[in-house]
């Protein structure tokens, strides 16, 4: 069972701390509430893409132009983005932090979801360093990932092993008046 909770506002605070400029993403079920939190953060520009394979090249272009982007896609999308990871991530030595939604992560119980089963072997196969984040208690791994990417000039993954918590709305705080 998952004991901790991962709050989007705490993740966004980490991204602000790292001076992230752009969040290149194709939303997935694990990160839905993260998207809402990011839209409320004026210092980070959200760049939606149509297919996960676009995310790494768009981020590479932003980095070349002097920006500090990250990407956020689901594990299934990472597999689709394999050639981008090879050619414009690993191949060029891109220091990029990749938030990967860990769909089907077995911390929720045994799963037949191959998207989950394949993720960590896939990252090992591609020699991508990674950290798993399952709750707010794990957020010290965010600066570690940025530091590792910068030191190695390689992409580093943060596998998000739980759904982001829904932040309470003003209405619910005020007693559900609506």
């Amino acid at each position: 069972m998952i004991n901790g909770i991962l709050h989007p506002k705490n993740v966004v605070a980490q991204l602000v701390e790292q001076n992230v400029s752009h969040y290149v993403t194709l939303p997935d079920s694990e990160t839905a509430h993260m998207y809402e939190a990011l839209m409320a953060e004026p210092s980070i520009t959200v760049v939606p893409v149509s297919r996960e394979g676009e995310a790494i090249p768009v981020a590479a272009g932003l980095f070349i132009a002097g920006q500090n982007p990250i990407i956020s896609i689901q594990n299934a999308g990472l597999y689709e983005a394999g050639d981008s990871l090879r050619g414009l991530g690993l191949g060029i030595g891109l220091p990029l932090v990749m938030f990967i939604g860990y769909r089907g992560h077995n911390r929720k119980g045994d799963t037949p979801d191959t998207a989950a089963v394949m993720l960590e072997p896939y990252l090992h196969l591609w020699r991508v360093d990674y950290f798993v984040i399952e709750s707010d208690e794990d957020l010290d791994r965010v600066p570690l990932a940025f530091d590792r990417a910068k030191k190695t000039n390689q992409p580093v993954a943060l596998a998000i092993g739980t759904e982001y918590a829904k932040e309470p709305s003003i209405d619910s705080i005020m007693g559900g008046a609506k």
């Binding site: 752009h22 893409v49 090249p57 768009v58 272009g61 070349i64 132009a65 002097g66």
Partner: peptide, 11 residues
């Protein structure tokens, strides 16, 4: 096209 988009947005 995707790499070019990133550069265009960043510069």
């Amino acid at each position: 096209s995707s790499l070019a988009l990133g550069i265009a947005l960043g510069a």
